[in-house]
Write a protein that binds this DNA or RNA. Structure first.
Lengths: 102, 102
DNA sequence: TTATATATATCGGATATCCTATATACATAA
DNA sequence: TTATGTATATAGGATATCCGATATATATAA
């Protein structure tokens, strides 16, 4: 039952999609920009096999779209539907973690 | 690839352990108290099959201990090791979600 | 005693996250 | 043209989270 590491209580997975919507709600970005921003925040950079399937799923769900494509660089932005999903998730997030940050 | 629901962007799993440590960092509680508090925060109450294995893992990791047992009611509290793990996780959490709440 | 409610416990499995490895396409420098 | 670097893409699989169903133990009420 080695569920937790030495000083780590959880891996905080399940929030990648939420974080991507959050970042895109501030400004359109492409995959590598998002990965780099997540690296700064979390401490480790998500691999290509992590970030691109996540973007694909969010796009498939109608939460984001390709805004621009220059060479292989695809800039994504939130759709209205994605904005709505983000705000709903943000409300839940805020209520859930009320008091954790203070 | 039905990864996301209609208006939901993620299920925010992976944070149950973190939330339990957070709640116990404020005061000792027993399993049902924790489940009820999570119900208020998240909107749905974690099932016994969710909460008790989580407590067991955290105890196994040395993050919490049984402080008192009355009948079947077990009150848990954080160990110093659990406090440390919580603070480390909290720092990471804060850095990761900087700007989401505002 | 019997019935009911509460709290804890565990098994099995569904699901999702995430990574490793690999491949492809485009741009630019040599 | 060739080489190199960058960005995207996907298959396959390891792992973890979480829940549904079920069982057990204790306390209390009828």
């Amino acid at each position: 039952m080695p569920r937790y590491g030495d000083e780590e209580c959880c891996d905080m997975r399940g929030l990648l999609g939420f974080l991507i919507l959050f970042l895109l709600s501030k400004k359109p970005m492409h995959g590598q920009e998002i990965a780099d921003e997540l690296a700064k925040r979390r401490g480790d950079k998500p691999s290509p096999g992590t970030i691109y399937p996540a973007l694909k799923s969010l796009k498939y769900a109608g939460f984001l779209r390709e805004e621009e494509k220059v060479g292989k660089t695809i800039t994504y932005s939130l759709t209205p539907r994605g904005m709505k999903a983000f705000h709903i998730a943000k409300r839940r997030f805020t209520r859930t973690f009320l008091g954790v940050l203070s």
